[in-house]
Design a protein around this nucleic acid. Structure first.
Lengths: 219, 219
DNA sequence: GTGTGTGAAATTCTTCACAGCG
DNA sequence: CGCTGTGAAGAATTTCACACAC
């Protein structure tokens, strides 16, 4: 009876999860749907609706009660449980150029519950140069290493040309999800592997078009 | 009578724009809605609907006709016109850490129609070290430089703590849109400034929760 | 009173069905 | 025929209104 949570809701819940984390760090114990909504750029209604999508059960109900909002700690845990964010996820990074390098060295990953279990690059020289706490491997070992280490998720930051081949190896290695930062859109047809395509250039374009296309509208 | 194009449609049109570019590079002259849809991971119906949202007028109608799809060149131009992607956009980058550095050196930006007009960092030493073709300035000059150069868009890659202050300066300098890669969600209340919050960690979480939350669902 | 929880209405987006053109 | 263009049906989301708990 786990009614599937709609995608837009899921996205917001991830943001709410982060907002709750920040609030807690600043010593805030409880927070209202209105306050969350403001930080999120959404209405209080929708925040409550999103929260109501979380599966009931283990004491969810009592996260929000007191006449002044939700218990931040409880709500955060509850979201983590529903979204599968409780235990650290094993992630690998393929492509150690500028962007891949920046990600592999991103300090916020591990405190946020991600374990970077491996890095890959086709340029073997690069592997030796990079001093990293992460184990590095040449790209042709992707399938084996992913399988051996039980890596579940991958981040792709390779050039356009290599992306399809990398995808193939990752899928064969058995990853469940891929974050694709390469400049090609990878279609999600492969098995049940979920692919999220992200591209700075497209985001820039979206921003610009959003602004341009709404020029001259009122309201 | 420029019926506003819905956001989901805009996002896809940006992707379609990129797909058309790739197709053209490979010498493909025409392309059908079904083919675009496949690369996009969407239905042919919706591709056609998205295209139909483009404002009519300057010979849009004849981009797609021939019994086999759209004229890639014409359609691409037409999208560019409607989305405001025709002339290069002036962009600045605030925060020249690993991520900011990766973006400022991203080769694909300028061929895609973006002009990186300035880079900012609060660490003055860093400014001298970075050898870059882009003009670099200390962060306290953001407002002045943005105004003087007529910079329209900004990419923020600073730590969480500095983000609100940077936002303030950018807004005062007069930017129209901001791509925020810092780990705080900036709310869009300021004037008419559009903010797009992007966070790798949230994207990872969304991917994981999407996979986790749909576990055990059929169809 | 302040703030959550949720069914029902309103809106937005997607899918469909089919007309029309080359 | 193959493929586009689009009004109308259908589905999914968001907004609203109001009941209930502290």
């Amino acid at each position: 009876m786990t009614t599937k949570i709609p995608d837009p809701s899921l996205k917001r819940l991830c943001n709410i999860y982060q907002i709750l984390g920040s609030a807690l760090e600043e010593g805030q114990r409880s927070i209202s749907s209105a306050e969350i909504g403001k930080k999120l750029g959404a209405s209080a209604y929708i925040v409550r609706k999103d929260i109501s999508h979380l599966p009931e059960g283990k004491g969810v109900e009592d996260s929000g009660k007191l006449g002044l909002g939700y218990d931040a700690e409880k709500l955060k845990h509850h979201i983590a449980g529903a979204l599968g964010l409780e235990n650290p996820a094993k992630v690998c990074i393929v492509g150690l150029g500028k962007l891949g390098g920046a990600i592999i060295g991103y300090e916020r990953l591990s405190p946020s519950g991600f374990e970077i279990a491996a890095g890959f690059d086709s340029n073997v020289n690069k592997l030796e140069m990079l001093k990293s706490r992460v184990e590095l491997f040449p790209s042709h070992e992707i399938e084996d290493v992913v399988r051996a280490k039980g890596i579940e998720y991958a981040i792709i930051t390779v050039p356009a040309g290599s992306a399809p081949e990398v995808l193939e190896q990752l899928v064969r290695g058995g990853v469940k999800g891929i974050l694709n930062y390469s400049p090609v859109i990878l279609p999600q047809d492969r098995d049940g592997v979920f692919i999220l395509n992200i591209d700075i250039i497209n985001d820039l374009r979206f921003m610009i078009s959003h602004i341009t296309a709404s020029k001259g509208e009122k309201e």
